[in-house]
Each structure stands twice: as C-alpha cells, then as structure tokens.
Simulated scan of single mutants.
Amino acid sequence: MRDLSANGVSVGRKSAWRRLPLAVKIGGFIILLVLLGMVAGWLNPTDPNATGPNRLSPPSPQHLLGTDLLGRDLLARVLAGAQNALYVGVIAVGIGLSLGVLLGMLAGYFGGWIDSLLSFVLDSLYAFPALLLALLFAAVFNPGATSSMAAIGIAAVPAFARLARAGVLSVKAQPYVEAARALGMGSARIIARHVLPNILGPLVVQASLAFAASILAEAGLSYLGLGTQPPTASWGRMLREAQSYQELSVFPVLWPGLAIAFTVLGFNLLGDGLRDWLDPRRQSR
C-alpha cells in the first residue's frame, strides 16, 4: 500500500506540473535565476563600487562580465542592481497592492457615496503616471529609491483597486455572502473570510504583472536621474553611465540591458501563465 500511495503522489505531482502553462514554467525559471543572482550578490566578495586599473576590459577570468569606465566589476554591479530592482519592486507592489485592495474592497462592498468618492479619487490618480509622481516627489523630497518606490506604488493603486472592486461586486452577490450577513456576521469578518479569499487569484496575476512594470519604471527613473542615486548600483543608471562610451565597449550596456529585459519578460510570462491557469473557465473543463 505504501508503494501505491507513493506512486500515486508522484504521478499526481507530475500531472500537476504538466498542467502548468508553459509561460508559468518559463517565467518561474527566469525569476528563479534572478533570485539566485540576488543571493549570489550577497555572497559575492567583490565590491560593486570598487574601482580598478582595468577599465573597459572584456570578460575575463578576473572579471567574468568585464569592467566599466571606472574599472568596476560589471558582474558585481549587475548582481547589486538585481537586489535593488527586486527591493524596489517588492516595496512598490506592496504599496499598490495594499492600498489598492483596501480602497477597492471598501468601494465595492459598501457602495453608495463611499464608492462614488473612492472612484473619483482613483480616477484622479490615473492622471498622474509614475513619471509625473516621481517628478513631484523629487521636487518636494530628494530624488532617490524611496521617492521612486512611493511614486511607482501610488501609480499602481488604481489598477489593483479597480480589480478588487470588480471582484467584490461579483462575490458579495453570492448566496453564501447573503447567508453570512443574515446570520449576523459583521462586515469585516465577511470581507476577511468570504470576499478576500475569492478575489485573490486575479490580484496575484496583477501583482506579477505590476512587478514587471515596477522594475521597468525604476530602471527608467534611474536612467533619468530620479530613481536610485549613486553609488548604489541600478540597472537603469548603469545604462545611463555607459551611454557616453558605448562605442568603446558594448558590455557595460549589454549586461544591464539584458538583465532588465529577461527580468521583465519573466514576470510578464508568469503573469500571463497564471492568468490562463487561474481562469475559472479553464478549470471547469
């Protein structure tokens, strides 16, 4: 019986893996590489800001990805940039997800003037993209990673709020929610126990896509000088610094550009795959 049970579990795991969309597998693999790179950056003894005599050197055993104009190791800087990108992405998506879900659930569940007021606020936020918010925060505060994270996170709030509001409007009309309300269950308990678990799927997909957008936005803001400030390594700032001497060496432009491209691609593929995998119409087949 143990052998049959073990074989059954093994077969079940294999079939579950096969049912995953290809996009989820590819996206998860790319994200795993990025996470491994981030851990490797912690263990890498090379200082990403340490200059050296070997300037604009090609890849070699001493510098696996080469060096930049100041002789800094590009591998160490790309890995440090991965840490910075993931850190900014986590904080920015956390801001957008928490505020967006809170506002969207309040608007969808209570309706009335609360819905009208919050919808007006969210529609107003659409007029302020991340770049304009970053310019505003840079004028009020000092430009840096903190202001860019706040700008990217606030710009992501409307998308999460609209998604949460639509999900709440659909779920709160279900019979089990009406039954819980008839039994005297409070609104907070209904939202936490019955509403939120049933709208998590689309929010997870949106969070994955927003993570890719946040990394791309942070790179763009750093390229413009509004994001991460030196000496902290950032992929966008690496591209900006290498732009002036890209004719002399292509490697300082190539590696951070590929890092941005593959990271954004990985999260976009993961989001598209999760969207297909969590589709109720697909699960009902």
Rank of each mutant, 00 (worst) to 15 (best):
M1K: 10
S5F: 11
G12N: 11
S15D: 11
L20E: 09
P21C: 12
L22W: 12
L22K: 13
I26A: 11
F29V: 15
I31C: 08
G37I: 09
G37P: 02
G37C: 12
A40K: 01
W42I: 10
A50C: 08
A50W: 09
G52M: 11
P53F: 13
N54H: 10
R55M: 14
S57R: 10
Q62D: 07
H63A: 12
L64N: 01
T67G: 04
T67N: 06
D68Y: 05
D68Q: 08
G71F: 09
R72D: 12
L74V: 13
L75M: 15
L75S: 09
V78D: 03
L79Q: 14
L79Y: 00
A80Y: 07
G81I: 04
A82Y: 01
N84L: 10
N84M: 14
L86I: 14
V88R: 00
I91W: 09
G94L: 10
I95A: 06
S98K: 08
G100R: 02
G100W: 03
G100A: 04
V101H: 00
L103W: 01
L106W: 06
L106P: 05
L106S: 08
A107R: 01
Y109H: 09
Y109F: 15
G112N: 07
I114G: 01
L117M: 13
L117I: 14
S119P: 00
L122Q: 02
A134Y: 00
A134G: 06
L135H: 05
L135R: 05
A138D: 01
P143T: 11
P143S: 08
G144Q: 10
T146F: 13
T146D: 09
A150E: 01
I152F: 02
G153I: 10
A155D: 03
V157P: 03
R165Y: 10
A166Y: 08
A166C: 10
G167M: 07
L169I: 13
S170K: 14
S170V: 10
V171I: 15
A173F: 06
P175W: 09
V177I: 14
V177E: 03
A179K: 06
A179N: 08
A180S: 15
R181Q: 15
A182P: 04
A182E: 07
L183H: 12
G186C: 06
R189Q: 13
R189P: 00
I191W: 08
I191Q: 05
L203H: 08
A207Q: 05
S208D: 04
L216P: 03
A219T: 02
L221V: 12
L226D: 03
G227F: 03
G227A: 03
T228M: 07
P230C: 12
P231A: 12
T232D: 12
A233D: 04
A233C: 10
S234Q: 06
G236F: 00
L239W: 01
E241S: 09
A242G: 02
S244D: 09
E247M: 10
V253F: 06
L254A: 11
P256E: 05
P256D: 00
I260Y: 04
F262I: 15
T263M: 03
T263S: 15
N268A: 02
N268W: 01
L274I: 11
D276I: 11
L278A: 05
R282L: 15
Q283G: 09
Q283S: 14
R285Y: 11
